[in-house]
């Protein structure tokens, strides 16, 4: 076998280029997972994905509304503080609105003179109060199932594409090139819209619901969303699909609150580095011009 490359570096450069170019001929956006047991999770369009992505403030406010009215009775957001609701890059509620939301919660703060825990209403600086005191309390209220905290749920989930093994590297490169970090968000959206009638012949365990997306297909949470479950002040249609999109986007924000600022800074850094690379390349060429190499 006579492999006559000029240098391994040039070869890998060519190989890499070939990868990237051929990846342009794939449109992974339209793939659907295979049949059988593989759940049907598709890549969605989110306002915050990719190089130019940023959160849609209105969507986050609607999503918070869905969380507050539907999810917060069982799921906590303990890593967030109420003041986050008023910060830039998020739902951007006013300070007063965020304070009103905080004050609806009851916080344990210190002990009274008898040593009993003291309660007060929430402040902006408080963390979100979880609906249950601890895991045991949560399980006992939910037939032994534990509704997990949702603070970072959008990053704690993912899904696997069922594609031929030799195409996987193309998907990796495509995902990196497009900055696709929303697999978890796509999973949440698919889960919330994945409640269906169980297929014929499948007997559900007690208290479980059938979900096309959840691993094992039986989920302890009954379908949380319904059409018109939550009122939207801005006139957006209140379908299950819309509710699912909005709350998934909201959970993306709870997991990654600084996304807007990060991508913004990223553009500046990338432009700076490109200019610096150019300057250094010209300097390098100029320095080496007088030496043969």
């Amino acid at each position: 076998m006579n492999l006559s490359f000029t240098s391994p570096f040039k070869t890998t450069k060519l190989g890499f280029a070939a990868f990237v170019v051929s990846s342009l001929f794939f449109s992974p956006l339209a793939y659907a997972a295979g049949g059988g047991d593989a759940p049907d999770i598709k890549r969605q369009n989110w306002s915050f994905s990719g190089f130019f992505g940023k959160y849609d403030k209105a969507q986050l406010q609607r999503g918070f509304g869905v969380y507050n009215e539907v999810c917060s009775s069982c799921h906590g957001l303990k890593l967030l503080s109420y003041r986050n609701l008023a910060e830039k890059g998020g739902p951007e509620f006013s300070k007063e609105q965020a304070l009103a939301i905080a004050q609806e919660a009851t916080v344990i703060d210190g002990v009274d003179d008898e040593g009993e825990p003291k309660e007060r209403s929430g402040k902006l600086s408080d963390h979100f109060v979880s609906p249950f005191k601890n895991e045991a309390a949560a399980r006992s209220a939910n037939n032994g199932a534990y509704p997990p905290d949702l603070s970072v749920m959008a990053k704690a989930r993912t899904y696997h594409r069922h594609v031929p093994w030799y195409t996987e590297p193309y998907y990796w490169l495509y995902d990196i090139a497009t900055g696709y970090e929303e697999k978890g968000v796509d999973y949440l959206y698919a889960l919330l819209t994945g409640y269906k009638k169980p297929p014929r012949g499948l007997a559900l365990n007690e208290g479980m619901s059938y979900n096309a997306v959840f691993p094992g297909h039986q989920i302890a949470m009954s379908a949380p969303l319904s059409d018109e479950a939550v009122e939207y002040a801005d006139g957006t249609p209140t379908t299950i699909d819309q509710h699912a999109r909005d709350v998934s986007a909201f959970l993306a924000w709870t997991a990654e609150p600084h996304l807007n600022a990060r991508k913004d800074m990223g553009k500046r850094v990338m432009i700076y580095l490109v200019i610096l690379a150019l300057l250094l390349y010209l300097a390098k060429r100029s320095v080496w011009a007088r030496e043969k190499h």
Binding site: G50, F51, K155, A156, R157, T158, D175, I176, G179, Y180, E181, K183, G184, R262, K263, M265, G266, V269, M270, L273
Partner: peptide, 15 residues
């Protein structure tokens, strides 16, 4: 920088 600003969790694991 591309990874840090646009795909910071790509190389990690969701679990």
């Amino acid at each position: 920088a591309w990874f840090v600003f646009y795909a910071p969790n790509y190389l990690g694991h969701s679990d």
